[in-house]
């Protein structure tokens, strides 16, 4: 206002004040965001990604996905997870580690979600449960696996189904085989860094190839919009490309850490 003349400043000021008044007047009539909590607990929608409490989903056969590897326990910065396992002998004579108890102390948890990210099986996840208050601290210590549950048999790896997309098929199928081959290289090698670099490079190539394939599949699908199979194939190829891109990014990250 200093470099304006007296009247220009006055008129400009009044204009801007009126703009502000207009904004608040409109805001008076907008729907309000207040949640009336105890009354609305039935219809209260908690966002899916809300980190309420850690759960281990079980399917209808009382099976979970946990293999008892204990990675979550090792990763947990607060020591809030304890994985109790035992060794059993399977029918074909192999020794196998199975989960006995997955103990989660919610009182210690800081909801960082490292455990769910670290889990190789996707066995644990955060549920949007929010009424977690209890009177006794011991009540916060929960056993996540249900009594009598067992680990689900691993389903067969899904085949890349792209029957009607000839352009997408070869490209999309190839990285599927290559990426798992690259993964086990990293931890076992002596010359870690070199191998890691190779693996990262390969993963990136895979990702690029998958991306190209996905784009081609998408084009094919767009050219024939009535063909549902083509569309499905394109979507699948896209999903694969995204997954491989994450794998590649992970490799890069690990490489940067080394």
């Amino acid at each position: 206002m200093a470099n304006k003349t007296y009247f220009a400043g006055l008129v400009g000021g009044i204009k801007s004040l009126c703009t502000g008044l207009g904004v608040t007047f409109r805001e008076l009539w907008t729907p309000k965001v207040t949640e009336r909590y105890p009354e609305n607990r039935k219809e209260n929608i908690i966002p899916e990604r809300f980190r309420g409490t850690l759960v281990m989903p079980h399917n209808e056969n009382n099976e979970h996905k946990c293999i008892g590897c204990g990675i979550c326990q090792m990763q947990c910065p607060n020591d809030s997870i304890e994985v109790v396992t035992e060794m059993v002998e399977t029918e074909d004579g192999k020794k196998k580690k199975i989960l006995k108890q997955h103990i989660y102390d919610q009182g210690k948890c800081m909801y960082c979600m490292i455990c769910t990210r670290a889990c190789p099986q996707g066995a644990i996840e955060f549920a949007p449960e929010y009424e977690c208050a209890v009177f006794d601290r011991q009540a916060l210590v929960k056993t996540l696996n249900q009594p009598g549950s067992k680990c689900a048999e691993k389903p067969k790896p899904a085949k890349p189904a792209a029957p009607a997309a000839p352009a997408a098929k070869p490209a999309a199928a190839e990285p599927n085989g290559a990426a798992p081959a690259a993964t086990p290289v990293a931890p076992a090698a002596d010359d870690k860094k070199a191998k890691m670099e190779a693996a990262a490079k390969k993963a990136e190539e895979n990702a690029a190839a998958a991306k190209a394939a996905a784009e081609e599949a998408l084009k094919a699908a767009e050219a024939a919009p009535e063909d549902a199979a083509l569309k499905a194939a394109a979507e699948e190829a896209q999903a694969k490309a995204a997954k491989l891109a994450t794998v590649a990014a992970n490799f890069q990250k690990k490489l940067a850490e080394m």
Binding site: E27, L28, K32, T34
Partner: peptide, 11 residues
């Protein structure tokens, strides 16, 4: 003031 701020105020 609550209504201006998109709240319900005391209820």
């Amino acid at each position: 003031c609550a209504f201006v701020q998109c709240r319900l105020g005391p209820d």
